Amino acid sequence: MLVGGLAVIAVPTAKLFGGVIPDGVSEKIGAEAVDALLTIIASSMLAVTTFSLSVMVSVYRSVASQWTPRAHRVQLKDTRTQTVLATFVGAYIYALLSIILLHTPFFSEGEIVVLFAMTIVVIVMIVATILRWVLHLQTFGSLEQTANTIRDDTQRAMHECVKHPALSANPLTPDVIIPADAITVRSERSGYIVRILTHALQTAATDCQGYIWLTVKPGDYVNQGEVIGHISGDIDTIKNAIKRFVDIGLHRDIPQDPEIGMVMLAEIGVKAMSPGVNDPGTAIWMMDRIMSVIYETPDQVSPTCDRVWMPVFELHRAFYTSVDLLARYCGGAVEVQQALFKRLGGVAHCDNPALAASARELGARLYARGQQCLPTDVDKQDIYKPDWI
């Protein structure tokens, strides 16, 4: 809405600089045309905004129906589209307010020149925005753009979750002893753990000299009344903090839960292998994106929230869940099976023992499915049991 804000500052700017504009400049540069320019901007921006909104809604529906319904929520965060719409609406507001102000006694000849210059700046911004919007529409909502957006969001989340496995809290491992007198905290509603603000919980626990042991992490599903943690200290204060800073919702979200991003990629591959589509290339493509995510392995950082404990993010579990989902529906495709064995073989020899074990188990399951699902003995002979299983 920066463009719309120009209309608000148009009057003081014109009053400030209008007095230094020499007489006759308005006629030389055609500043009298500002009224016509503003009318054109007002009428065209209303139409362009309506068109852009219809395109956006169509793309969102197409993404949800063609790829996976969960990808729709990822596209809603597209900042380019939001910026474009804000520019168009802002330009419309600027033109509308400027037309109103222009027909008031506020503007002299010199001040009209200032308004004309500001209008030229707005036109340049509109043209630049339209060009960016046209380039963005070339791939907006396509398979490549949707998959890359999910992968990029998942990579960022994976980087943070591997770097801070417990979101800067202490890892809640089996050897952690929760005091017997700790108070149990239960969920007030059913849903997914969307996000946990561990630093805010740390502040609340520090203020009342208490401790928090959460037994859930982002991505977990909890039922109403289910235990989600234990606390000590000022019970009411910490319970209110957990209610505020442990977000429970109907949908999983990628920023603290990269597993759902990997599952989205797998779902796109699964849909590509449905009988009505039968596109093994897309399934392989999605596997490649999952593989690019799991190799995001920065060094872990020591916990900074010493009064909060929670379960750690498990990379091997997220990998297993997403790849097994994809492999389960690709057992009858030789090309996809061969590609999966190739990728899993690399993971099976990685330095992460848990991840390597998951890859070996996935390979064994993939081979067993292939022997049952492949329709002919010729196809089965094309699948060799790897020595790393």
Rank of each mutant, 00 (worst) to 15 (best):
Y221L: 06
T79R: 05
S358I: 02
T50A: 13
A200P: 11
F107Q: 00
H72P: 03
I9N: 09
G210C: 01
M287T: 09
A36L: 03
T215D: 04
N148Q: 15
M125R: 05
A91K: 01
K380R: 10
V20G: 14
N352V: 10
T154P: 02
G210W: 04
G191Q: 07
I29P: 00
H136T: 02
Q75H: 12
V334L: 11
I212V: 15
M286S: 12
M158E: 08
I284W: 06
L344S: 05
L131C: 06
S168T: 15
D220I: 00
A204P: 03
K385E: 05
V84H: 04
Q256L: 03
N278L: 09
S292F: 13
I29R: 01
L85R: 05
T49M: 13
A266Y: 02
L362R: 01
V334N: 11
P303A: 11
V270D: 10
A86Q: 13
S58W: 01
P179E: 08
T119W: 03
A71M: 01
I100E: 00
F106Y: 11
A359S: 05
G141A: 00
V270F: 04
W309H: 07
P12G: 06
G261A: 08
S168I: 15
V3S: 06
A348T: 07
V11F: 11
G332I: 03
P165M: 15
F319T: 01
A356E: 08
T184E: 14
E226D: 11
I231Q: 01
A166T: 12
L201G: 05
A200W: 12
K239T: 12
S62A: 01
V334E: 10
S302M: 15
P165F: 13
Q66V: 06
P258E: 07
I112E: 01
F88H: 05
E144L: 10
C161D: 14
D152M: 11
M125N: 12
I235G: 00
C350L: 08
A241D: 04
W309S: 10
H316G: 04
A180M: 15
G363E: 03
N352A: 13
A368N: 06
T49G: 10
V55W: 03
F88L: 06
P165E: 15
H199F: 14
D253Q: 08
I120Y: 00
M310S: 07
V323S: 03
C350N: 11
I389K: 00
V378N: 13
Q372W: 09
L325D: 12
F313R: 11
V176I: 10
W213M: 02
G5P: 11
D234E: 05
K243A: 11
P353W: 09
S65P: 01
Q209H: 09
H136E: 05
A283M: 02
G261R: 09
E226N: 11
L6F: 15
R369P: 11
A272N: 02
